[in-house]
Amino acid sequence: MELQCPMPKFDFDVITLGHGSGGILTHQLLNSGVFALLANPLLDEKHDGAVFEANGKIAFSADSYVVSPIFFPGGNIGELAINGTVNDLAMCGAAAKYLSLSFIIEEGLPMTDFWKILNSIQQAASDANVHIVTGDTKVVEKGKGDGIFINTSGIGFLHPEASIHVSNIKKGDKIIISGNIASHGVAIMSLRQGLEFESDIISDTANLNHTVIALLDKFGQQIHFLRDPTRGGVATVLNEIAKDSNTGVNILQNKLPVDEGVSSACEILGLDPLYVANEGIFIAIVAVDVADDFVTALKQLPFGANATTIGEITDQHPKQVILKSSIGGSRVVSMLPGEQLPRIC
């Protein structure tokens, strides 16, 4: 059973334009709903912004969430919005601490849906040990949004040993992936109109900060680079790495971890899992000397059970990603010109 705070009694069943007006409805919504659920000393100040002490290096990141449908197998837009920004900060080597949370809601969103999303936000924030300290709510007319859009930005404190930068990537480094690929994108796709299919596939949405910080504690500067392969999937991130670091990337097709159901769905839908979105895994480029220990350690950490080495950095073919196919052929893995489109037959 899903744990959820009972919804307080509101005078309204759906969000209306008035909830974004700043007037009584806005206050009703915030005071009896949002503030109560997400309470913490900084948010409770109800100031125009949050004021706090910060020492040392901080990382700052922002992201918007427009996923459709807003509820999907394994999660909803709320936890996605928290985990996404927490993970972006983790990829910088920072432990997320404070988040802003802004809603753009299409009028007509049922309060029960909004409450469910808020609960997921609260749960995800608590799991990631972050506080939502400021935010905003706007409502747009029916037809001008897609239920709800969420924007979060976050501040995190950099791990003292973190030195994560493309310029650290060098020949011989190993490329490690923390878990199975393509689950999120396929879970979303399974609900899209016209593509509906029954499956047990769920989104991999998860916070990666605790795992990444534990790895930084252990491996510090031997971790040369981190990135989470969200939009565009693993192929896109590897291309970014190759181009930005001016190195070549070699990967092995038969090392790519894909859940069997996801792999079957991709076959049927005509999609390449390398380009499908993920929300709970990361790619790490680490020094060759520690690569095996890194994988062993990662396997013991949350969301790391399927971690594996998928390839290495080379000085051959700079700026290009080359995949060795399972049968021994090789090919370039390029960036897609746009969205991956299903084929005719």
Partner: peptide, 9 residues
């Protein structure tokens, strides 16, 4: 053929 690198083999 191209995706599996067969043309190179």
């Amino acid at each position: 053929l191209v995706k599996n690198g067969l043309l190179t083999l």
